[in-house]
Design a protein around this nucleic acid. Structure first.
Lengths: 202, 202
DNA sequence: CATATAATGTTAGCATTGTCAACATTATAT
DNA sequence: ATATAATGTTGACAATGCTAACATTATATG
C-alpha cells in the first residue's frame, strides 16, 4: 500500500502523520517536552515542513487536541449509551473509565482538560469542543434517566452534571499531578467518592 | 529606609526581590510567560544575576512555590482554627475562600496545585509541601470535629478529606481553566456542590 | 501531451531564552 | 589594610519557533 522508498520528496500524508506522532509524543512525554525539530526528525522531514500544514506549533497542538477529543468520544460514548446496563452501572463504569483514562494518559488528559489554548480552541477552530460538550450532554442525559428512576433528585441536571464532573475531574487531577500521596488508598478514595456522589445526588 | 541611589552595584536584597517579583509576575501572567531576562530587567539587574541566588530558573520557581504555600497558609489557617464558629460554618467558609483564591489567582493556583516540578519539590527542597499537608491535616481535623458532632459519618477521615478536596479542586480547576461555560451558574453549582458534599458525607 | 500553477518540502538564518565562563565590584573578616 | 567571599556584569552558546527564499513534485488546463 504505502511506498517505502528511501524518503521521497513528498511524504504523502504528512499532515495526518504529524498529528498522530505529535499526539503520541505528547501522550508519552508531555506537552512541554515536544519540539517541532524532534517531531519532524522522527518523521524524516525537515524541521519547517510543519508549516505547509499548520500555521504554527500552536495550531498543530490544537489539531492534536481535536484528535484527542475524538478518541475520548470513541471511548466513552458506548459506555454512556449501553442501554443494556442500568443507570447506576453506567454511572459507575463511566467514572471508572474516566479515571482510568486520566491515569493511563496523564499528559493527554492535562492537554484536553487543562488550561492551555483555551481561548484559541474556540477562536481558531470553531468546533467549540463538540466532544467535550458531548460528554457533558451525555452525562446530563444519564442524570435525567437517573431522575426518572428516582435515584437522583429532580433538580437542575446541568448543575448536577457540573458537580459530578468536578468531583471526578478533581480526583483525576490530584492523582495524576501527584497531590494525593496515599496512593495505595486510591481505590478506597474512588469508591468513597462514588458512594458519596450517589448519596449526595439523591 | 531603602536607599534609592541610581542602582548601586549590589542590590541589597535581590533574592527576596526576585522571589517577590517572580510570584507577582506568575500570578499576573502565568508561569509560561515569565522570563529571567524580563524578571531581572524589572529589578534593574543584569540577566544572570539570578544565578548568584538560585541554581536555575526551576529552583527559583520552587522558591516561588514555597512562598505561595506560605501565603495560602496565612490565608486559610485562621478560617480552619476559628473555634468561635460552628464546624458547618467553617466548612462553608473554607470552601468559599478556597474557590475565591483559585478564581482570583488562577495562575498561582495552577502553580501550587498543578503538575509542574512535582518531583523536584520533594527532591530539592525537603520541606515536603508542609503547607499543603497542613491544609489536608486541617481539613481532616475539621472532619473529625464534624464526626464528633454527628454531621459526618465516622469513616476514614483521610479518605473523606481527599474526597472533599477533590470535589472543590475539581470545581476550581474546571472554572479557572474555562471548562464550565455556564459561568453565570457558578454560584448555583458551588452551592449544590456544598450541599451534596454535606449530604454525602453524612 | 505539455506546461503553468499550486502544493509540498528544504536550507539559511534570525530572535528569544536559559545557561555558563570569565571578569568586575563590593562586602566581610582576619 | 587587605585577602577572601559575596554579589553583579558582559559575552557567548545551544536550543527552539519561525520566516524568507528556493527546490521539487503534483495537478490542472490548453
Amino acid at each position: 500500500m504505502k511506498e517505502k522508498k528511501t524518503s521521497p520528496y513528498h511524504h504523502g500524508n504528512l499532515k495526518e502523520a504529524l498529528l498522530k506522532t505529535a499526539l503520541e509524543m505528547i501522550d508519552r512525554e508531555g506537552l512541554d517536552a515536544i519540539t517541532l525539530r524532534d517531531l519532524t526528525q522522527r518523521l524524516g522531514t525537515s524541521r519547517t515542513a510543519v508549516y505547509r500544514h499548520f500555521a504554527s506549533k500552536e495550531v498543530l497542538i490544537l489539531g492534536v487536541i481535536e484528535k484527542g477529543y475524538e478518541q475520548l468520544d470513541l471511548l466513552f460514548t458506548p459506555i454512556f449509551q449501553d442501554r443494556t446496563r442500568s443507570v447506576a452501572e453506567r454511572f459507575e463504569t463511566m467514572g471508572r473509565a474516566y479515571l482510568d483514562f486520566a491515569v493511563e494518559h496523564p499528559n493527554l488528559y492535562r492537554l484536553l482538560f487543562g488550561e492551555k489554548f483555551r481561548r484559541e480552541r474556540e477562536e481558531i477552530c470553531d468546533y467549540k469542543n463538540e466532544t467535550q460538550a458531548n460528554g457533558l450532554y451525555a452525562l446530563i442525559g444519564l442524570l435525567l434517566e437517573a431522575q426518572e428512576e428516582g435515584i437522583v433528585a429532580r433538580e437542575n441536571p446541568m448543575v448536577q452534571a457540573a458537580t459530578v464532573w468536578a468531583s471526578i475531574h478533581g480526583l483525576a487531577s490530584l492523582l495524576i499531578d501527584g497531590h494525593l500521596l496515599m496512593s495505595d488508598n486510591i481505590e478506597a478514595i474512588y469508591e468513597y467518592s462514588q458512594g458519596m456522589l450517589l448519596k449526595g445526588l439523591r
